[in-house]
Computed example of a mutant assay.
Amino acid sequence: MTTLFISDLHLDAERPEITELFGRFLRDEARGADALYILGDLFEAWVGDDDPSDTGTLVAEALRAVSAAGTPVSFMHGNRDFLLGHDFARRAGMAILTDPSVVCLYGRPTLLLHGDTLCTGDVAYQQFRAQTRNPTWQRQFLAQPLAARLAFAQQARAASKAHQSGLSSQGTMETITDVAPDEVAGVFARFGVDTMIHGHTHRPAMHQVDVTGRARRRIVLGDWYEQGSVLRVDAAGERLEALA
Rank of each mutant, 00 (worst) to 15 (best):
A65C: 06
A235V: 10
Q126I: 03
D50R: 10
L42R: 00
V47N: 06
C119R: 00
R15K: 14
R217T: 14
F22Q: 02
R232S: 14
I197Y: 02
E238R: 04
D87I: 14
R214D: 03
D182C: 06
R203Q: 07
Y37E: 02
L112C: 03
A62L: 06
T212G: 03
D99Q: 07
V66D: 03
I96G: 10
R218W: 02
D182P: 03
D99R: 09
F191M: 05
Q164W: 04
T19R: 12
A92L: 04
E29R: 15
L97N: 07
E20L: 13
Q154D: 15
V193G: 02
E174R: 11
D194W: 03
E226Q: 08
N79I: 01
Q227F: 08
T117W: 10
E17W: 00
P204F: 07
A130M: 04
S168A: 14
D28A: 14
P135M: 08
T19Q: 15
F5D: 01
D99L: 07
R129V: 07
Y106R: 06
T3E: 03
P135C: 05
R24F: 04
A159G: 05
Q144Y: 01
F22C: 06
A185R: 11
G56P: 02
A159I: 08
Q127L: 10
T136P: 02
Y106N: 10
Q127H: 13
T71M: 08
